[in-house]
Computed example of a mutant assay.
Amino acid sequence: TVWRDLISSAPDAKFPPAAGRYHLYCSYACPGSHRALIMRTLKGLEDVVSVTYVHPTWRLTNPDNPNDKHRGWVFGDPLGQPFSNTINRGGPFPPAYTGNKPDPHFDAFSIREIYEVAHDTSGKYTIPLLWDSRLNTIVNNESSDIAYMFNSCFNAFAANGDLDLYTEDNEEGMAKLNEVNEWLSPLMINGVYRCGFAKNQRAYDTAIDELCKAFDHADDILQNQRYLTGNTLTDADIRLFVTLLRFDEVYAIYFRANARLVMLTPSLLSFCREIYQMTGVAATCDMEQIKAHFFGSHPEWNNYSVVPRGLGFMELLDMPHDREKLS
């Protein structure tokens, strides 16, 4: 099953815009979830689309069947017991971190069970996941679609309905956004994963070279203008931010993307400070849960789920920025 339906105001739409009808299943740890959360926050949709933050550390999703090895996102249980990783090492991880709560609809143990309620046949139990609580089915599980819908489909209910992070009424702005997306996604956002998943030195060298090129390109742009497309905040800036937020503390270590650091790149650090200090954005950023996911969910890479302390990147984000001078 491919879940790519859209919210639409068409008269016969299956999923019309409405307040209180849709629910976002997401994680503070997941970059795609984070993109959707920031869009929800900036648009002022907190009272329109409800949210559940799942536990950041993957667990076996069908623990009663020893032959079922699928691991993935589970719900927090504040009354539960601490647990180890999926090979019974490391941790112990708390049964819930800040904001992790049980499933409000079906009392499910895992996101997998939500997919099964919707009769999913794909077997890819990913988040973010936009759920229709009226029809009891999945609307969409693609982060780019969900971010777009939050930007464009709920304006009648949004506190900041006039904010448009896709510059849809500006052809020149859309052209600039599309130009940025041509390099941002394949080289920067996906680049960190290609470094981490490289199976040989040649593949890694190619990936890290391309990542450094994209990193430096973002640096060059943001030394001279406030945002990636100019003076207007767009979805591309949010996508870059959720990558940079994880870069020094996770990607540089876990994915061997250590040829660059945000904290040593003044323009990118200042850019992160500005986004982080926008109203409501800081509340979507939880480095403890980000680390718990990456360092705790893949025991084949990190047997004992030891979480590196890091250099205190989050503390740097509260310091003043000077991005206004570039406008």
Score class of each variant (00 low, 15 high):
Trp3Met: 05
Arg4Ser: 13
Leu6Glu: 09
Ser8Val: 11
Ala13Ile: 05
Lys14His: 08
Lys14Tyr: 03
Phe15Thr: 02
Pro17Lys: 08
Tyr22Val: 08
Tyr22Phe: 11
Tyr25Phe: 14
Tyr28Asp: 14
Pro31Ser: 02
His34Leu: 14
Arg35Pro: 00
Ala36Thr: 15
Arg40Lys: 15
Arg40Ser: 13
Leu42Asn: 02
Val51Thr: 15
Val54Gly: 02
Pro56Leu: 10
Thr57Asn: 05
Thr57Met: 04
Arg59Cys: 07
Leu60Pro: 01
Leu60Val: 10
Asn62Ile: 09
Asn65Leu: 06
Pro66Trp: 11
Asn67Lys: 15
Asn67Tyr: 09
Gly72Glu: 04
Gly72Ala: 01
Phe75Glu: 06
Phe75Leu: 11
Gly76Asp: 05
Pro78Gln: 12
Gly80Ala: 13
Gln81Gly: 03
Asn85Glu: 06
Ile87Ser: 05
Arg89Glu: 12
Arg89Pro: 02
Gly91Trp: 04
Pro104Ile: 10
His105Thr: 10
Asp107Gln: 14
Phe109Val: 03
Ser110Val: 10
Glu113Ile: 12
Ile114Phe: 08
Ile114Val: 15
Val117Lys: 15
Val117Gln: 15
Asp120Tyr: 05
Thr121Ser: 14
Ser122Asn: 11
Leu130Arg: 08
Thr137Met: 09
Asn141Leu: 11
Asn141Glu: 13
Ala147Pro: 05
Met149Arg: 13
Phe150Asn: 14
Asn151Tyr: 01
Ser152Gly: 13
Phe157Trp: 04
Ala159Cys: 07
Asn160Gly: 14
Leu163Val: 11
Leu165Gly: 03
Asn170Val: 06
Glu171Thr: 08
Glu171Cys: 03
Glu171Met: 12
Lys176Ile: 03
Trp183Thr: 00
Asn190Arg: 14
Arg194Glu: 13
Arg194His: 10
Cys195Asn: 09
Gly196Cys: 07
Phe197Asp: 10
Lys199Ile: 04
Arg202Trp: 08
Ala207Gly: 08
Ala207Pro: 03
Cys212Trp: 01
Lys213Ser: 12
Asp216Trp: 07
Ala218Trp: 00
Gln225Tyr: 07
Tyr227Lys: 01
Thr229His: 00
Thr229Gly: 01
Leu233Asp: 02
Ala236Glu: 00
Arg239Pro: 00
Leu244Asn: 00
Leu244Cys: 01
Glu249Val: 02
Ala252Gly: 13
Arg256Phe: 09
Arg260Gly: 02
Val262Trp: 02
Leu264Gly: 03
Thr265Lys: 01
Thr265Glu: 04
Ser270Ala: 14
Arg273Trp: 03
Arg273His: 05
Ile275Phe: 01
Met278Arg: 14
Val281Asn: 06
Val281His: 06
Ala282Leu: 08
Ala282Gln: 15
Cys285Arg: 02
Cys285Asn: 14
Glu288Lys: 15
Glu288Met: 14
Gln289Tyr: 07
Ala292Ile: 09
Ala292Asp: 06
Ala292Lys: 09
Gly296Trp: 00
Ser297Asp: 03
Ser297Arg: 08
Val306Gly: 05
Arg309Gly: 04
Gly310Trp: 05
Gly310Gln: 06
Leu311Glu: 11
Gly312Met: 12
Met314Val: 15
Asp318Phe: 12
Asp318Cys: 08
Met319Val: 05
Glu324Asn: 10
Glu324Val: 10
